[in-house]
Design a binder for these strands. Structure first.
Lengths: 183, 183
DNA sequence: TTAACTGTACCGTCCAGACGGTACAGTTAA
DNA sequence: TTAACTGTACCGTCTGGACGGTACAGTTAA
């Protein structure tokens, strides 16, 4: 069974959450070890007790991404409104755990972190497959890129800590476009 | 009149080109003053003679972007195949001066550089206007996001110095999608 | 008793920017 | 015509701060 755990490692999750938040709200450059520890309410020594180096912290964050991604693909495949409509709707920032890790990962991808780049490419492939099953292989890329465009634009538009842009109307018009592509 | 013009400022353009290249191929983090100076074949002191600080270097790069953006909007408005088709085709990386500054600017936007964020938002607005005139206001956003998705995916996919991904087929399918949206 | 911490001191490296100098083209005045 | 001078275009070095990471001695709670 499990070894003798003297105390629960509360700092571990707190550090990971803080790292995620900093990536999302301030960008990769701001997500230094000191800043992460401070936001997590943990000493730097405590942080490095759990994650021997920054790379290790990133790895665990990517594992979190993998899990939530898998769940999301499951929901997308089972969505009653169809995979395409689900995908478009889920391409708008909603502050869900899934959105949070994904945006955090995007920040790492932006600075060309190789492992992150690969995970995101894999996610894209997964989405594309389900879209092809829904709207046909010919139009799948169009829908994928629409959603991606929406996503990336929202990320760029808000910048660090800025307000969320208005995208409700955008989603409706994209949904209409998807219907036209399907026809 | 003018004072004595000793020599041509050859370093200035070289520095700007080097800055652009580093942003594109290695990302913002790698585009340090030392790296830029080295790639430009100029001393750090020489670099700082022309650009008093990094911000100034960015400003001049953004001016370069503005000029090329204006030209591109002109070509898009006059494109015989229509603004939408022109936009999709031009959303694929072609290593033109325009593509180069734009990607460089995107790298800065990724690290939340405010002025760059604003310029890119303005560019998006310009494109959207021409797209609305071509395919109608209802479908303009769909086309815009398709192009953006294509663009951002290509950027993410190739990472730093990596090879260009294959997108010829993507462009064709997006072009077909645009026709369906127009109908 | 032991895992899970805190806190501080420290190291090597990297970075933006400051600074003092150098080379030289053109201008001016004796 | 030429020596003295001016402004431009650089070069090379240094500094102060931040960052990733190490080391380790002490504290707390199950």
């Amino acid at each position: 069974m499990m070894g003798p755990m003297a105390r629960k490692p509360v700092a571990r999750e707190a550090v990971l959450d803080a790292f995620e938040s900093l990536l999302i709200e301030e960008g990769e450059r701001a997500a230094t070890l000191d800043a992460v520890a401070r936001l997590a309410g943990v000493s730097k020594g405590g942080l490095l007790y759990h994650f021997p180096n920054k790379e290790a912290m990133i790895s665990v964050l990517l594992e979190r991404l993998d899990g939530l991604l898998r769940e999301d693909l499951g929901r997308m495949a089972a969505a009653p409104e169809g995979a395409a409509a689900y995908f478009i709707k889920s391409s708008v920032w909603a502050d869900t755990p899934m959105d949070r890790v994904f945006v955090a990962a995007t920040r790492l991808a932006e600075v060309a972190h190789v492992e992150t780049l690969q995970r995101i490419a894999a996610a894209q492939a997964g989405w594309l497959e389900l879209l092809a099953a829904d709207v046909g292989p010919g139009m799948a890329k169009a829908v994928l890129y629409m959603g991606d465009g929406l996503y990336f634009n929202a990320m760029l538009a808000r910048g660090p800590g800025g307000p969320l842009p208005e995208v409700e109307g955008d989603v409706d018009s994209l949904l209409a476009a998807v219907e036209r592509l399907r026809g």
